[in-house]
């Protein structure tokens, strides 16, 4: 595992069964909707098991937002791939979908009035309220490791304002803040040599000129092929 040398944090790799169990539990945890999966995966894959670094995780969230589809399924594909290659991605996505699939079909087949049941309703609302607490802790944890510069606090707040007030869609806000930061703060971007598992430049061609000053001295390794090799090996 070559990435071990550049990324000492990323030391462990689970079997497919534990990967399935991890994402199945994550799928059940999304009371209140798909985006809750971000907090669950951050807690489990980054903090608890160190399968994924903070940096790699942020990349995956950005990519999951930038492609169409449900956040939780996209995150399962990307994080599963990062942990265990293509088969890992398929296993993770299947595991994440299984819980909602079973819940909805069961409700339709057996418990049509289940949600009208006061106790079930209360339980789901309570679990949903706790999901917001989980996400709050996760925001703190990711932010602590990822947000380092003053301009990042400001542009992060601007994003929350623009998207929260529904002036922009999440994707539009993401692209706007991304391009704005590249344009005005590209010289201040944190270049950290220790960072290992990068998902790279999906928009690289457009922004190459803006960040050239910071990056032209090093054409980096092909980190994804490392990830692929890891996946194949296991």
């Amino acid at each position: 595992m070559t990435s071990k040398t550049v990324n000492p944090k990323n030391v462990s790799s689970p079997g497919y069964l534990s990967l399935f169990s991890l994402f199945f539990k994550a799928g059940i945890s999304t009371f209140g909707g798909g985006p809750a999966i971000i907090a669950v995966l951050e807690t489990e894959c980054v903090t608890r098991y160190s399968y994924v670094t903070d940096e790699g995780f942020v990349d995956d969230v950005a990519v999951a937002t930038a492609v169409p589809g449900a956040m939780s399924v996209n995150m399962a594909f990307l994080t599963g791939f990062r942990i265990k290659g293509f088969l890992g991605a398929i296993v993770s996505a299947f595991a994440v979908i299984l819980a909602p699939f079973v819940v909805i079909t069961s409700i339709l087949v057996w418990f049509d009035t289940l949600l009208e049941n006061k106790i079930v309703h209360k339980f789901l609302l309570g679990a949903g309220a706790a999901v917001t607490g989980l996400i709050a802790v996760s925001v703190w944890s990711i932010g602590r490791n990822i947000i380092k510069e003053f301009y990042q606090y400001i542009t992060g707040a601007v994003f929350v304002a623009l998207v929260g007030l529904k002036l922009l869609s999440p994707l539009q806000g993401l692209v706007l803040i991304f391009l704005f930061n590249l344009l005005f703060f590209s010289r201040r971007v944190t270049v950290n040599d220790d960072v290992g598992d990068d998902v790279g430049d999906d928009v690289g061609d457009d922004v190459d000129d803006d960040v050239d000053d910071d990056v032209d001295d090093d054409v980096g390794d092909d980190v994804v092929s490392e990830a692929l090799a890891e996946g194949d090996k296991s």
């Binding site: 990711i142 990822i146 190459d208 090093d218």
Partner: peptide
């Protein structure tokens, strides 16, 4: 297109929005 430093540069630009996105998920739920 694997370029580590470029990826880091791009990430620094996008991470405030990613964090904002997660924050808004808590709000909307």
């Amino acid at each position: 297109f694997g370029n580590r430093k470029l990826a880091t540069a791009l990430r620094s630009a996008v991470s405030p929005a990613v964090l904002g996105l997660i924050f808004l998920a808590a709000y909307s739920i």
